[in-house]
Structure formats: C-alpha cells, structure tokens
Computed example of a mutant assay.
Amino acid sequence: MGSAEGSGIGGKQFGVAWPDFNDGLTYTDNVQADSSISLIEFYSTNHNNSAPLQGWLQRIQNGQITVDGQVVKDPQTILRSGSQLVYHRLPWKEPDAPYLLQVLFEDDHLVAVNKPSGLQVLPGGLFQQRTVLTQLQWRVAADYGQPQPSPVHRLGRGTSGILLCAKTKLAKVCLASYFAHGTSIVGDKRTISLEVNATRKISKIYRALVTGIIKEHQVVIEQPIGMIRYPGVAHGLYVASSSGKPAMSRVNVLERNIQANQSLVQVEIQSGRPHQIRIHLSFIGHPLVGDPLYATGGRPVCFDSESGAEDCGQDGYDI
C-alpha cells in the first residue's frame, strides 16, 4: 500500500492506496438448539441463502470454519448447544474505488472531508474495506493519539460532496441530532414553511443534472418514500410510495439546456431518506442523467406493479 498526503483545493488530501485484496470477513454464530445437529446441517439450513449445500461443504473442507476456536473440517461433526461457530470468508478483490480524501475543515471535534464519487462511506456488499471509514481509521493509525473520526451521515457511493465526521462522542451526538431534526419536522407544512430555515442547524444542498426541461423555477416535492422487495438488493429497494415515510425536497432550476434536453438543478433536502434525490426527481418526470435504476414515477425501471419487481440486473449505485 502506498500513502499520499498533500495540498488539495481548499485543504490537504490524505489516503492510502487500496491493497489488491481485502482482509476477508468473519461471521459468528452460536448454537442454541438443544437437539444434536451436524456442522453441515447447521450452515446449509441457517445460511442457505449465502451458499448451496455444496458450497458449505467446500468451505468446511477448506478449513474456513472454526468451532469454539478450533478448525473443523469434518462436515458431519455434531455440534453442542452453546458452541460458537466462526465462518472465515476468504479475502477478495473489491471493485475499483478512489482512495484520496480532501480535508475541508478540521478541529478537535469534527472533520469535514470532500468525498469523491465512487467511494462508499461505510462497509456494505462488495465494499468492506474500500470505504471512507477505512481511510479515516488508517489515518488515525498513522498519527497515533488522534481521536478516530466517525461519519455521522451518509453520501451514496456515486455522490460526491461534504461528509461530516465526528471525532468525539459529544460531537457525534450533537451532529446526529441536528440531522435528525430536519427529518423529524417534515410532514408539518406550517412548521416547514415558518420555522425550518430559522431553526435548522445543518442544511443539505446538492446539485444534479436531470433529463428534460423543468419549466418551473422552483418545485417542492413532498412524495413519501418507502421500500419494496427487489432482486439483487438484500434489504429491499427504496421507492416513491404513498405508504412510506414523509420526505421533502426543494428543487431550484439553475440552467436549462434545450439542445441537450437537460436541466441543472440545486436540491435542498429537508429530510434524509435513502435515494431521496433520485426518487423525487424521477417522481416528477426528470430522472438523473445516467441513472440506470429509477424511471419516471420514482419506481425502478423494470418494476411491475402487479407482479412485483422483475429481475433486471444489479443497480450498481447506492445513492
């Protein structure tokens, strides 16, 4: 790994080049059943969505599973109630991602970094090491004694922008409450119109390029956002849904490109729902340029309202 630190626009940059392979992962289980069960039965029954029977046999025989700290390669080993099982997932090469972060502001309480597009904030999916959190941890390790920053909000992998990271417990609690405040008051139109701008301590403003020409100078979108089951997304996909949670976005048009049939907009989100900007702009008929997932109406491109979401491939985006 190679490290880099130097001056960037508006502040210094830091980052360590990603190694070819990550460190793998470990997953811990505890046997709670009173009746006897074999090692292969436990994994093929409780984690059949992770791998088929043959896959778990191979992992056991490879020595990737320990029972109470001891490697066990016999899949027919009978487990005892209370035993601790650990599955060691082998290291893998994560998808390409940038690693340099630009420091915009830093004091004893927080650090604000400019997160580049393509870098995930927290571990998830294929990205377990190539994240903002890892770079922050490595930076602290190289400068022993400094408090370890922790991101207090998220920006999607494909989104660039300012990411606030707390360096103390007090800062984390305060910043988290500031972010939560704006979301909690969404839904009360009187409160929003009279008090938000005066009481809000953190504002979230983004710029985006959307398809089509937005005629109005400003559009306020208050479409709730909920979740549906969707192939390739383990915990479900967020979409425009009347039964979802309240969400509000203020959209101001900055430029209109008639020839390209595109509009450059500035979006201030009062709430912080996942995928909110993508969903809201597609909901009003102006999806983000290049968005492979959300179509007009704030639903997935391949979503069938009668039969559910069809399998049209992985999204590849987190914003």
Rank of each mutant, 00 (worst) to 15 (best):
H181E: 12
G15T: 13
E268F: 02
V301R: 06
N252Y: 15
D291Y: 04
Q262V: 02
E195K: 05
P98R: 15
Q129H: 10
E195R: 06
N257W: 00
S7F: 10
V111S: 15
G308L: 04
S117H: 09
V186H: 04
I65E: 02
A309T: 07
R154K: 06
K12F: 02
L57D: 07
S81A: 13
A33V: 04
P116Y: 00
V253A: 03
K215R: 09
Q314V: 08
M227C: 15
S184D: 10
F14I: 14
V173N: 01
I225A: 07
T191K: 15
I37C: 01
Q102F: 05
N46L: 01
A240I: 00
G298E: 07
Q137C: 00
G158M: 13
G8H: 14
H88I: 07
S81T: 15
V152M: 04
I60V: 14
W56E: 10
S3T: 15
V253M: 08
L100F: 11
V239S: 06
S184M: 02
I40H: 13
V72L: 07
E41L: 01
V31K: 10
A198N: 06
N22L: 02
G158D: 11
P231W: 13
G118I: 11
I279Q: 05
G156I: 10
T66P: 00
Q102M: 06
C312N: 10
A260M: 02
T77C: 14
Y87Q: 14
P224T: 10
I221L: 09
L164P: 00
K169Y: 05
V239M: 06
D318E: 15
A198P: 01
I9A: 14
V152N: 11
Q102D: 03
S81D: 12
W92L: 01
V253E: 00
P149L: 05
V219Q: 03
Q64P: 01
Y294H: 03
K167D: 09
L101G: 14
T66C: 03
H286L: 10
V267T: 05
D188C: 09
K204V: 02
Q76R: 13
P274S: 15
Q259M: 04
R229A: 00
L104D: 08
V16A: 12
V86I: 14
H280P: 10
G316Q: 12
P300G: 12
L163P: 02
C165Q: 09
C165H: 11
G182E: 03
A171E: 07
K215A: 04
C302L: 08
H109I: 11
P231M: 13
S50N: 11
V265S: 03
V210N: 01
R139E: 07
K169S: 01
S117M: 06
V140G: 06
I9T: 07
G308K: 01
F283T: 08
R250G: 14
D291T: 04
N62S: 15
E41M: 04
D29K: 08
G313L: 13
